[in-house]
Design a protein around this nucleic acid. Structure first.
Lengths: 111, 111
DNA sequence: ACAAAATACATAGTATAACAAAGTATATGG
DNA sequence: CCATATACTTTGTTATACTATGTATTTTGT
């Protein structure tokens, strides 16, 4: 049927929610990029392309909402770990307020 | 602080959610464009620019998820009323399933 | 031992949709 | 009569998810 429309819509819904999800995941825990993708896939069924995540993380760094540090591994490729900055925590709390409102509004409309 | 980031983020969150909201609002009731903006503003605090809504409605018409009909007024400018098509109802039900999942996932992450 | 898959990061190009801004036209209130 | 509200439309800009591709290392399969 209208497969493409729904598929496309899902992609559009991700715009914005992805940022929100990433920041929330980093709230309690440091993660490296690849791990973020895995964690979110496991816990939420949301698939994030690598080509989506890494540019997103760089935007968040430019905005100074997250910082990153390279961590060498005993074996394997070094990993870039991300964590929230103070500004990131503050911004996230504003986003949480908006989301809660939005979610309530939508719930009211769907009912 | 990072005003622009949050503002911008809100705009991104609307991508997708707006379509979803509009279709859900039209599920139980016919509305004309201007009325949709007002209804949603009153009931949800979500602001929709006219330059956002009308192109969106045209997309939904092109996708054949909604139909429209002009209704002449005794006084004032004619109104274009929108209603869901069968395909629109079907598509919306798929979207509702995805949204419910997403919402649960995000709730789990935020907790 | 070698190929394939998984891990880990990065970038370029494309498509989509929200928004600001401007325009058209009618009606109403001060 | 002028500003504001109603009602729809179009143009150009911007942000971001995605596909595709590339690099490099490690693990797994046969």
């Amino acid at each position: 049927m209208n497969e493409t429309f729904v598929t496309n819509w899902k992609s559009q819904v991700k715009k914005g929610t992805l940022t929100f999800i990433i920041l929330n995941v980093l709230k309690n825990h440091e993660y490296y990029g690849y791990e973020l993708i895995e964690q979110i896939r496991k816990h939420t069924e949301i698939e994030i392309a690598e080509g989506t995540l890494y540019p997103l993380m760089n935007r968040l760094k430019t905005e100074e909402l997250v910082t990153s540090k390279w961590v060498e591994q005993e074996t394997g490729i070094p990993r870039k770990y991300y964590s929230l900055t103070e500004a990131g925590i503050e911004t996230l709390s504003q986003m949480n307020i908006y989301w809660e409102n939005l979610e309530k509004s939508i719930k009211k409309i769907i009912q």
